[in-house]
Design a protein around this nucleic acid. Sequence first.
DNA 1: GTACGGCCTCAAGTAATCTTGAGGTCAACA
DNA 2: TGTTGACCTCAAGATTACTTGAGGCCGTAC
Lengths: 146, 146
Amino acid sequence: MTRQPDDRLAIGEVSARTGAAVSALRFYEELGLIASERDERNQRRYPRHMLRRIALVSVAKRIGIPLQDLREAFADVPLDRPPSHQEWQRASRAWKLRLEERRRTIERLEAELTGCIGCGCLSMKACTLLNPGDTLAEDGAGPRRL
Amino acid sequence: MTRQPDDRLAIGEVSARTGAAVSALRFYEELGLIASERDERNQRRYPRHMLRRIALVSVAKRIGIPLQDLREAFADVPLDRPPSHQEWQRASRAWKLRLEERRRTIERLEAELTGCIGCGCLSMKACTLLNPGDTLAEDGAGPRRL
DNA sequence: GTACGGCCTCAAGTAATCTTGAGGTCAACA
DNA sequence: TGTTGACCTCAAGATTACTTGAGGCCGTAC
């Protein structure tokens, strides 16, 4: 297909540039995570600013954060026009907080696991991975979430 | 149920201590991620060292790492007896590498997102989130994975 | 003795995240 | 003029990670 006099991208091009499968792009659209316009042949056309959204979706997927979370974080960023600097900034900050939270969780686990490697994790009482609150369950209501 | 003369734990106790649902524990066992013995009434009994395995499963789940990865990392740690210090250490180290990898991915994304917040991500050419290799796709084989 | 709680199995259902398949349009190329 | 490739829709299938439900066993408490 030769290039339209249109700077918007066809779904195949978007797929090639973002690495997301064509089927995945259609699926994200169904979820309302991204949006597209249609050309005179009813084919999807993506404005360039949509690549940014798609990149975010790929990222969320890659680090195992549910798409629903992304949807919430970027709920206020419009899909039908290029978001303003401010709109994008606000949502990006919220999303960055999510990432930080996730990172800190992993950091904590790394630290705990390092402790476990050191101690061999042979002592239940000493292992923070197992025993986050440093308590041993005396009755039914023992330590719960890690 | 009063306490057996058995230091192994019933499935309900394990659930209470680890925060994993009873049904999830049975499921993990089916997957071969954990194991249990049976008592004279055919009820599952968990040796205490199994709590460690279960904690790891909960963690993997929580940070969005597929259980299959955990299975691979801990493939060499025996389920039928308390693992030796060395066995546990080796697997823990491997798993820690996974965590580090995941953390670094997130760190990189955080940094990129920070850049995007700064620049407003209004310039495609400058945005590393969108354009990791600093190239714009000239033809079909554009930048792929983020 | 019967009700209740904790356990059992096995099958089916759910949710998230997609992919695959069937059937069709349209434009370009040999 | 055919055939190829990119796109379309809609429905069904796949995978991961579980939960729920039906039907049943056993021991303790009222």
